[in-house]
Amino acid sequence: MTENNYAVTAENLTRKFGSFTAVDKVSFAVKKGEVFGFLGANGAGKTTTIRMLCGLLQPTSGQATVAGYNVYTQYEQIKMNIGYMSQRFSLYEDLTVRENIEFYAGVYGLKRKQIKQKTEELLTYLKLWDQADMLTVSLPLGWKQRMALSTALLHDPDIIFLDEPTSGVDPDSRRNFWLLIYELADKGKTVFVTTHFMDEAEYCHRLSIMRDGKIVELDEPQRLKQKYHADTMQEVFLNVVNEGGSDK
């Protein structure tokens, strides 16, 4: 089956809130191992789409699968197969680094022995042994960000949703973070990213741009730049989103 090559599929996916159509017949497919960028203005329908894909919100109509599971019926399986990291990081700042990792491992249902093993693995991987018993609040932002990503990966999900993961992080740490993302993609993980940093959008293999509930562009960053005769994704984005400005 072709669907096995895809981590996420959506076909005519729609969500209405009363008379308002937040997501309007959206169709796309994300390949396994792909870094997929999900762009759009505030209120274009990105968050609603992601919430449906993560099994947090039922679609009004249309179809979607995540990791091969149906979003209408198999949301529990979906939750076990995805990782989610938001710009707010959701780390407990008054727990130590070690306690945060153990806490999330527990939440994801890992066994006591696995928790111990995973915690040690992560501390080594993040080079945080010296900080293991320090309060998380005292870590620099770039480290917290790497740690938040790692805790979202504790249950070894196939698909990772990153919601504006690098807001406010310095340029050097942001690049280190993207090297981690590529590393994950090389291991076959699928990465689904939303961002307002247009230079960051260019790191994605493919990008979709939403406007008024619809996906209006979906292609590789280079090809989008060619299409709009633009030097930067910022120009592309402004072009795409402003085209629809008059019908608001």
Binding site: G40, A41, N42, A44, H196, V241
Partner: peptide, 9 residues
């Protein structure tokens, strides 16, 4: 902060 490129401009 957290505002999309169009609204930012």
């Amino acid at each position: 902060y957290g505002v999309d490129p169009v609204s930012r401009s």
